[in-house]
Design a protein around this nucleic acid. Sequence first.
DNA 1: TTGAAAGCGATACCAA
DNA 2: TTGGTATCGCTTTCAA
Lengths: 346, 346
Amino acid sequence: MNDVAAAAGVALKTVSRVVNNEPGVNIATAERVQAAIDRLGYRRNDSARTLRSGRTASIGLVIEDVADPFYSGLSRAVEDLALRQGYLVFTGSSGEDPARERELVLAFCARRVDGLIIVPAGTDHGYLSPEFDAGIAAVFADRPPGTGCDADTVLCDNAGGAQAGIRHLISHGHRRIAFFADSPAIFTATERLYGYRQALAAAALPYDEGLVAMGPPEQARVQAGLERLLAAPDPPTALLTGNGRTTVAILRALSALPSKPVRHGGRLTDLVGMAVVGFDDFELADVLGITVVAQDPSGLGRTAAELLFRRMSGDVGPSRRVELPTRIIARGSGEVPPRQGGKGAS
Amino acid sequence: MNDVAAAAGVALKTVSRVVNNEPGVNIATAERVQAAIDRLGYRRNDSARTLRSGRTASIGLVIEDVADPFYSGLSRAVEDLALRQGYLVFTGSSGEDPARERELVLAFCARRVDGLIIVPAGTDHGYLSPEFDAGIAAVFADRPPGTGCDADTVLCDNAGGAQAGIRHLISHGHRRIAFFADSPAIFTATERLYGYRQALAAAALPYDEGLVAMGPPEQARVQAGLERLLAAPDPPTALLTGNGRTTVAILRALSALPSKPVRHGGRLTDLVGMAVVGFDDFELADVLGITVVAQDPSGLGRTAAELLFRRMSGDVGPSRRVELPTRIIARGSGEVPPRQGGKGAS
DNA sequence: TTGAAAGCGATACCAA
DNA sequence: TTGGTATCGCTTTCAA
């Protein structure tokens, strides 16, 4: 900037004014400065700007995994909104590791991001206190903050969504419905289990622990669980999954089962005569004909970003908690009637 | 840092030494400083550090769209490698808009990132010259740089992959093979078209422009193209897509066609008796039984990051160009024999 | 082993 | 409308 000032024959401060479009600069002067800027290929150093002004115009986003379509949809929404406001986004994947979440968050804080959007992996966020004291804004998305932290939160209606999914299956005649979800340590999984139980209770159906399989959505584990259930004396006639990863694992497991004659159309779930509702929509769910409880990952990201920007522009009210609705998208797999007469192919 | 120094009763420089784990500090002193750091909740300001040292320990990543699984896979690989080296990643989606690509890149440069990984949307990268002069490192991924720029590049073997896909279909008896790809303006689409033509020529098959449909992978456009082809007097018996998005659109279009009786298994492509090979693997391709030419998005990201870090640590050799191999994954849809006897159901 | 002083490149504030 | 100067928080360099 010094060089530009020298080249244009003005003071440093005048260049600063031009670069920042501040009012009160003679047009002729501004043009002369601009010419010097272009000629020298000058670009403002935002580190220096940051150091002086205290604002970095950047935010940090910690998610579980960018490669998971749910989180990449969320990411994209955050990014779009941030960019429109002139903010840049640091992105990091925690991989469900609380230590890595903390590391990322603190690294972002050291870079002096103005705000954070966090999908927490850990359950203790006391480590954020000094950062809050230092004036950083934070919003939690998809899962609430753990202990030692109070901040805006945007969630899906997890319990409500699971409840609606089960109600849907019950309305199609199912009474024995399995639930495959992520580890109970994960907030959303537990909430959805709660919704599952509520819906059963509301329909006066018994809660059978044997029908519930929770854990990491690994193919082998899910497949073993499914096979165990199907081999049981009184197998379920329907199944609700607890997230997109699990849905995929279930579909893979179903398609790996010894195939049965197909009756009508090429729908996958017809192969085992089991109704399936997936929690979270996914690409090709329409092609596969899979009924889902759709969440709104973009909405989650957008809302989180909106809340964050509101905080960053000075809102100091009590922390909010927003819950986004889910909706059932019926595509066939959730509308299959219960298979008659015990186990095996129909 | 000043406060910490005062609290610990040492000089600023000593605190700096402790914070940066520099050698030559008395253990007792270091402990006293550390205690003060903890007590005050002090965290180093990386903006100031950057300003003085000139290194930000961050890189910028510009991709087409984080929400596209291909790019989110690439992102994740870049992120992992960067984090392991202590670097943070700014991510931005260009959405195939050259202006937005440029905007993002320049914004990253203003933040003084140490390096850039770019999936270019534009075809002119002369705007990078001043940045290169300023010492920034850049690697292009998935597509080469446009005019006015010479930099390391990591690509997939696009032509070779398409060629292999076509050879695969030819080996299963197909002679009229359609090609659905992205706009010819996109590097990878053109390369793959080239591979398609090469493979046809190598098998002494004619190149029929009527079998090629290139353009944005929008559902309506792809579907119309497919219907036009199927209604033609001499319809293709097989089809190669040019990317994942197009594959999904084709599958959706196929499943939207009036359904035909199913013979064996629930495979989608049996419905129209058309063989399908998709360029780029995707989740559930195994469940749907879709044969693909698999790329390696993680490998692309990893290699790009490796090249970048090599440059950032001082490698000044001539620019490299790495090409990653593709491989065919046969899952059924690409091994369907040509349908006999003209159009309509088999 | 420790410290003092200069300076990175911008902005804030006040003066002209 | 313009300019000068202090300063942001740290690292670098040199001296003690």
